[in-house]
Nucleic acid binder design. Structure first.
Lengths: 219, 219
DNA sequence: CTGCAACTTTGCACAACCTGCAACAATTTC
DNA sequence: GAAATTGTTGCAGGTTGTGCAAAGTTGCAG
């Protein structure tokens, strides 16, 4: 793992080896997703995917930890420190919206390959079974996200106890994720991959959220 | 499948056969959950569970469709027509809370055996892997729940388009589920199995929800 | 009580998922 | 071009889950 010269520090400079590996992985994912569209998720075996991708089944498992991981992608939304700092400091929108916006960005960033991203959404949207696995997978990180929100809450509402911050963190994550999920379908309808429209859709959702959580709406 | 006399109509009268089957299933579930507490979820195989429950592995799969189904329970929250009618007509609380209350009741009703219910919660709470599967499993029914909410919305907000009702239904379900999940842990701390406290906890959550979704809270 | 009919349990074979290991192949480095 | 590093593959084996048919149980009618 010799550090190549890295003229600009920190840019890992992709060697020939790494590039081939990345391409092989992408090819495999595409193969899996295409097969799902053709035969349905339940009828797609690892052997079929490996076959189409031109690798051995054993290599498939070197690339991905499971069949689902290949279809859903191995990278999960992971906001970096800059995004987190911006989220914590943000003042112009509600806590839930601030978090939702950050997650929307992290989500889009989690798959640099836009074609793969869209293909995956299509397959997930048409496969309830796979959608369930996906939701479960993302939910694994809820506690970690909630801790992030708690950091913002500690700054903005110093009077809250730690227990309250944890509770509200959990709640914020659940609502924000729900909001993103609710508009994701609408977002994919557009031919645009930017997160701008997604953020706008989320933003427009909040008047609805407030009405739906209000005891006696003014009709 | 002879209809027994059924003096009171509709009460299925459990025969000896059915009772034994139900008990064997419960024994199997308990065995699985206990083994999870003892050895950790990842180390528990179907063979071990079947062994402790005194049945063959093959019979295990006659009872449950998968290892997870045995641990998480086969019954999912399923509100009956009365509960749905009450939900749709309810006027004293917000849409989200009305739905959350109904789901809390349906959830509690989905497992009549309280001991099993609590044991299961303990295992799920200490096993992120299993919790993820559980969330995914419940999420499978989201669309169906959203349709339920849409029915209420159609009554209360006649001016909404069908698309809007679908969107807000999805949103309502996500928020309500998140709210229940957020207070479930706190609820289980109590030694009480009634849904009353759960409903109260959910109710008290709404001021927080409203603050977290408000653009510029009054600090 | 007896035997028949219906249902349940079980074993067995089999396909698919996934992992560890060791041999083999390709690439990078010197 | 040889050595070291890293990626690929086959193979054995454990686990999940399913179909099928044989064997065992239970309920019921005569």
């Amino acid at each position: 793992m010799h550090d190549v010269q890295n003229t600009e520090e920190c840019v890992p400079v992709e060697g020939r080896r790494e590039r081939k590996l990345r391409e092989a992985k992408a090819t495999t994912q595409r193969a899996g997703l295409e097969l799902c569209l053709e035969h349905g998720y339940g009828a797609v075996t690892v052997e079929m995917i490996a076959d189409r991708a031109g690798i051995s089944p054993r290599t498939f498992y070197n690339y991905f930890s499971s069949r689902e991981a290949a279809l859903l992608g191995d990278g999960k939304p992971q906001p970096d420190e800059d995004m987190i700092a911006a989220f914590i400091a943000r003042e112009d929108v509600s806590d839930v919206e601030a978090f939702a916006v950050m997650m929307a960005e992290a989500w889009a960033k989690s798959e640099p390959d836009r074609e793969l991203f869209r293909l995956r959404r299509r397959v997930i949207d048409t496969t309830p079974e796979l959608a369930a696995v996906n939701i479960g997978r993302i939910a694994e990180d809820r506690a970690q996200y909630a801790a992030l929100v708690a950091r913002r809450l500690a700054v903005r509402y110093p009077h809250l106890t730690e227990t309250e911050r944890e509770l509200e963190g959990t709640l914020t994550v659940a609502i924000a994720m729900g909001a993103i999920q609710a508009v994701a379908k609408e977002w994919m309808r557009g031919d645009d991959d930017q997160t701008g429209p997604l953020k706008a859709l989320v933003h427009d959702l909040f008047p609805r959220v407030r009405r739906l959580t209000q005891a006696t709406p003014a009709s």
